[in-house]
């Protein structure tokens, strides 16, 4: 089976002050459709960078980065910013640790946002259902500043999955939550991802989260 996400010989580095620091050198990774992969490693090891490369927010310095969906390849390393953005909008759902929601849109509008971008308002009933599943049915009109941290992450999950993307990226999705909320949010994320059969690439420090994954990719400095 072809990989949903495929990185071959990828290199990526940043200017760190005056010094150039290489985060990835000849890095390979293949993630199969429906696979849940935990990306672990110490701070600065490149977890978020990997997710941002896959999302097309960053560009590889060298090597190949390909996304595949519905029998079509999307070679991100060859695409310009606009094309990468178009791929991201359709194929990727992203959950961040902080600042996940647009503050001026309410819960339902935040979740509708990717549907509107993809002209997929037909998925709105499912999105509403998912919000209900996530325990947010009575919070649809609330704005982000009226939600708790756990509620915000649940909305972020609902939004990331709203357009039913084949790839979901989650960067420390429970890093800002207490243990109880953490567990609950992770349960919901896993449950929805498995139900939709998406790839989940989750960057985490949490062993509990990593243990839930099908596979763990350990990054080192």
């Amino acid at each position: 089976m072809s990989a949903a996400i495929s990185l071959k010989g990828v290199s990526k580095g940043f200017l760190d002050g005056e010094r150039y620091r290489e985060v990835f050198v000849d890095f390979d990774l293949a993630v199969a459709p429906g696979e849940i992969v935990a990306v672990c490693g110490p701070s600065g090891s490149g977890k978020s960078t990997l997710l941002n490369l896959v999302a097309g927010l960053l560009v590889v310095d060298g090597g190949l980065l390909n996304l595949r969906h519905g029998g079509v390849d999307y070679p991100l390393h060859t695409l310009d910013e606009a094309a990468r953005g178009a791929v991201r909008r359709r194929l990727v759902g992203y959950v961040f640790q902080f600042f996940n929601l647009i503050p001026t849109l309410n819960v339902l509008e935040n979740v509708r946002f990717p549907l509107a971008l993809n002209d997929r308002d037909d998925l709105l009933p499912q999105a509403r259902e998912r919000l209900a599943t996530l325990g947010l049915a009575d919070r649809l009109d609330a704005f982000p500043d009226q939600l708790s941290g756990g509620e915000r992450q649940r909305v972020a999950i609902a939004r990331a999955l709203a357009h039913e993307p084949p790839i979901v990226l989650a960067d420390e999705p429970t890093g800002n939550l207490d243990a109880g909320n953490s567990e609950q949010v992770a349960d919901m994320l896993w449950s929805e991802v498995e139900r939709l059969g998406c790839v989940l690439l989750v960057a985490t420090h949490s062993e509990a989260i990593a243990e839930r994954a099908h596979r763990v990719v350990e990054l080192g400095r």
Binding site: A55, F96, I102, L117
Partner: peptide
């Protein structure tokens, strides 16, 4: 966040 959602230029 808008970038991450694929909102283009």
């Amino acid at each position: 966040l808008l970038d991450a959602l694929g909102v283009n230029r």
